[in-house]
Design a protein around this nucleic acid. Structure first.
Lengths: 326, 326
DNA sequence: TTGTATGCGTTATCAT
DNA sequence: ATGATAACGCATACAA
């Protein structure tokens, strides 16, 4: 910038004014713009942020085992939704992957180092070091999904997992099934635990713990193993609630192998309304997750906090999508 | 930091020394550390970077239509590999999504604003504005895959798509197939075009353009539509090379629907060795892409450029993985 | 309208 | 071993 000022024969202050917008004469502006072009000047945004004390950037972190990051299509959609909203507000979304203890420490430094004005956190857990850093730093943040403890300090956005699970299982019951099982995934996370709770609520008196098999992740493999286990525990099972569409796809494959017709003999429902749901034969009845909206709302919630507001948590609607699998 | 210095009764220089490492007396160090804790001081890394003129960060950008970003499991693996290597070198990987014209401009500013010391670019195209910015900025960068023009200015890392395609198709031919078709995806990208070239090379004289159907993306849907088209063009097709495992999975579904046994009546091979390959029935013969290594090498190549070196492009091995589908 | 001066939070070069 | 002090590249209040 020094060079530009010299080349244009003005002071650095004036150069700064044409860059940002302020009173500057037409001639001076022309001279400066010419100088900028000839010198090939690009402003150092980092320096600008130092003086403005804002970075115009928001971090997006996924506190997940990396395998899940690769599998879960929702996370990608959430990112895109968040980015879109941040982009409109002229904020840069920077996605940070934390995949090791070393990452955790470095990301914590990054967050507290003035590089971001806020953060969107997917799959936060209360005990997570990063979560603590954010809380103690007072960094504007929003969680996707509701972590047990900090829900009151930090706003969150999500869906009603329990209610939606209850709704679709109720509907599954209404198709006349009597032995309904569940392949429950990720019970250590709020989404997983809530879906199981909804399943249980829908069944009420008829709930049978023996018909719930547990799996660590929301993936295809969980469906394969889970369905085999379910079948061995109760060969007469005629309804299955899979904790996600990927899980349901795995279960469907096993049902096919074992010669059970879907939906004639066994009704199957999933969760997510992901691409899986339309790829299977028959297509899956499932719960629609408005993942893109979740991201968009998350972005909005950080932005508002950056502006000094204290927004409330947001729960987005997640309707049942009924197809042919049940 | 001013507060810390005051509280500890020393100068800011000394505080800086305990933070970074330098000669400082035991008493001073103790006093300063106590002050840091009581004040709750966290260093502003942004300010440090300004004076050091290094950010210790590397950008990771995916110049893809966002739909593909969500679908492609390779990109996630590449990210993880890159992050691991960067992390060991104490560099922060920041992933930037460019999903609109507005994004393009903002990301370009971000890149030239001093926030990153280098960049890893997936799916670069020569005409892309971001690519031009990087080139004109002289920012240390590496491409994943080889863009046509800038290959000499900017190093890249990738696999031999053409050679691998030729290898697996040759092997498919060796199983005694006589009417072999290809579902070719993403012909506007080097990977897509090269895979087709390899297919053609393997067939030599027997290559028949009528047996090549084109699809825009490497996804499941492309396989479904492509296989239907192929079947209608040549009902007697007995071998299929799908441009990716996801494409192969879609094709397999159509083959099943139309009553063709795989591999008995039709041999099918894919590309990527992704999770798709093991989920299908039968599992797919395919090409193993060392995606994680690609990311790791990419990181290494930027790091070396940041250190002033001028590394050559790297081609990683991508062996045939033979399973039951052909 | 424009120039000058000061500060943003650090590191680094000097002396001491 | 430590304390001043000058950068780093920019924005801005104030003066002119």
């Amino acid at each position: 910038m020094h060079d530009v000022a010299a080349a244009a024969g003005v002071s650095r202050g004036t150069v700064s004014r044409v860059l940002n917008g302020g009173y500057v004469s037409t001639e001076a502006r022309a001279a400066i713009e010419a100088a900028i072009a000839s010198v090939g000047y690009v402003p150092n945004t980092a320096a600008r942020n130092l003086v403005r004390r804002r970075s115009q950037a928001v971090g997006f972190l996924t506190l997940e085992p990396h395998s899940l990051l690769l599998e879960d299509p929702n996370i990608g959609a959430i990112m895109l939704g968040a980015n879109e909203t941040l982009s409109i507000a002229d904020h840069q979304m920077v996605s940070l992957v934390v995949d090791s203890a070393r990452d955790t420490e470095r990301v914590a430094r990054y967050l507290s180092g003035g590089f971001v004005d806020g953060a969107i956190v997917v799959s936060a857990r209360t005990h997570d070091p990063i979560t603590r850093v954010i809380a103690s730093l007072g960094l504007p943040a929003v969680f996707v999904g509701h972590p047990p403890d900090l829900s009151r300090e930090i706003p969150w956005v999500g869906i009603d997992n329990a209610g939606s699970a209850q709704a679709i299982v109720t509907r599954l019951i209404a198709t006349g099934r009597s032995r309904i099982g569940m392949i429950a995934s990720a019970l250590d996370r709020d989404s997983g635990a809530d879906r199981l709770a909804g399943f249980r609520a829908a069944l009420g008196e008829r709930f049978d713990p023996a018909l719930v098999v547990e799996a660590p992740l929301y993936d295809y493999t969980a469906g394969v193993k889970g369905m085999r286990e379910l079948l061995s525990r109760e060969p007469l099972v005629d309804g299955v609630f899979a904790a996600s569409d990927a899980v349901a796809a795995g279960a469907l494959e096993v049902l096919r192998e074992s010669g059970r017709a879907v939906p004639a003999e066994v009704g199957l429902v999933g969760f997510d309304n992901s691409t899986w749901a339309l790829r299977t034969q028959p297509p899956l009845s499932t719960i629609h997750q408005p993942a893109r909206d979740v991201g968009s709302v998350a972005a909005d919630l950080v932005l508002r906090q950056i502006d000094g507001e204290h927004p409330d948590p947001v729960v987005l609607p997640s309707p049942v999508v009924w197809r042919a699998s049940a």
